[in-house]
Amino acid sequence: MTIPIEQIKLRRLKMQLKHPFTTSFGTMQNKEFFITEVLDNTGNQGFGESVAFSSPWYNEETVQTNYHVMKEFLIPLLRENDIHHPDDVLDVFSPIRRNNMAKSAMEGAIWDLYAKRRKVPLAEALGGKKEEIDVGISIGIQPTIDDLLNTVGKYVQEGFKRVKIKIKPNWDYDVLAAVKKEFPDVPVMADANSAYTLEDINQLQRLDELGLMMIEQPLAHDDIVDHSKLQAVMQTPICLDESIHSLEDTKKAIQLESCRIINIKIGRVGGLSEAKRIHDYCRAHGIPVWCGGMLEAGVGRAHNIALTSLSQFALPGDTAGSSRYWKKDIITPEVTVENGRITIPNKPGIGYEIDKDALNRFTVEEETFKM
């Protein structure tokens, strides 16, 4: 049965983060993004969220390129093709190279609409079985080690199951050692955001002394080969993030033994359907996965929660509660964390209602497309 899409709406939002977020690339205070909305012929609405940033520091996509690709290419493709199941969107969008975050923003809304039409939670529509998920916390680079320890201590008291520390050259071993000394029983991982090269191999090998859960994406954002060389001489598991854009990338990374863990980000891989395919392949090959965050607002956060309900998400993800990032989110109720866990909603679709007042308050532009 065809999913009858009658209308698509693109809303550009601008929201201020509660705290500046700093990585090896720089600092961000404001987040611009799109909320996508698809409407069927009976009034059901599906919502998605774009995760590209305003500048191309994470990958080549930006908020503006997402808008261009969605308006000029993806929406016309949806007009021209029947969608029977959200998985069909992968094939419909396949003539467009890359631009995975734009694709994901559109596909996510269709997944939400599909689940609502079936009157099932999005997690169930994806095949998830969990009733709750474990979550960790991602902490940006802090002004001092003392500031970092105070921040980590706060989140440990709140019960988060894992702490992710952003690192870069000259902000790595000593920082992580201080955290491990202060919190010896807390699982700690390091996220390098591609800040190193193989010339730093001795410094990276030192991290083996610390018993980290993993080090995420230490080398180039588009590399698989050098990570294989690094993993061969490190005990600490390497986790790939920016290098994995598809199931094909996943297969190559596993074959080359470039990593022992994979971070699945819905936007980075082009949507929930591809994320599920990567999950299934990793499950078949014994590779643990976890769900990374992109500073999402409530809609994107809800999609992450639904995806993490799948069985191979064996490690805590980055999907912290709404109040960690926003004074006011655009969903109700907001995502909350209790003792390091999030309960998966059992309402149809993403399981959260859109707070229309908040959505309107943060919207700076909107455009409607008849199908």
Rank of each mutant, 00 (worst) to 15 (best):
I344W: 08
P316H: 10
S311L: 10
W326L: 02
L315R: 03
K347C: 05
L272T: 06
I305V: 02
A314W: 10
P345V: 02
I278D: 04
S273F: 08
Y325H: 02
L315E: 06
G286M: 01
P316K: 03
V337T: 01
I350R: 07
A275C: 08
A275I: 07
E296R: 11
V289T: 13
V335D: 00
E274Q: 13
A320H: 01
V289I: 15
P348M: 03
A302G: 08
T308S: 15
S309W: 04
T319F: 01
T308K: 13
I331Q: 10
V335Y: 01
I287W: 05
C291Y: 10
S311W: 04
N346D: 14
A297C: 12
D318W: 06
G340T: 13
R268D: 05
G317L: 01
P348G: 06
A284P: 06
Y281R: 07
A320P: 05
H303T: 01
K347I: 08
A275N: 11
P333S: 04
H279E: 15
A297T: 14
T336S: 12
T308V: 07
G321N: 02
V337N: 02
A284L: 11
L315S: 02
G271P: 04
R301K: 14
A284S: 14
R268V: 09
A284F: 12
G340N: 07
R324T: 00
L295Y: 11
W290F: 15
C282H: 15
T332A: 07
I305M: 12
N304V: 12
I350H: 03
A284W: 10
G292H: 03
Y281V: 06
S322C: 02
N339Y: 13
V289M: 08
H303F: 12
I305Q: 06
A314D: 08
I350Y: 09
K276C: 09
V289E: 15
R277T: 11
A320Q: 05
W290D: 15
C291G: 13
I278V: 12
K276D: 10
R341V: 11
L315P: 04
G292A: 13
T319R: 04
G270P: 01
R268I: 07
L315G: 03
L295N: 12
G270V: 09
I331A: 03
G340S: 14
H285M: 13
N304G: 11
K327T: 00
W290R: 14
I287H: 05
C291W: 11
L315C: 05
G321A: 00
K276Y: 10
G298L: 05
D329C: 01
H285A: 09
S273C: 07
G293V: 00
A314G: 07
S323C: 01
E338T: 14
G349W: 09
R268C: 09
K347S: 13
R283Y: 12
R324Q: 00
K327C: 05
V335C: 00
A302W: 05
D318M: 06
A297L: 03
Q312R: 09
L315T: 05
V335M: 01
A275V: 08
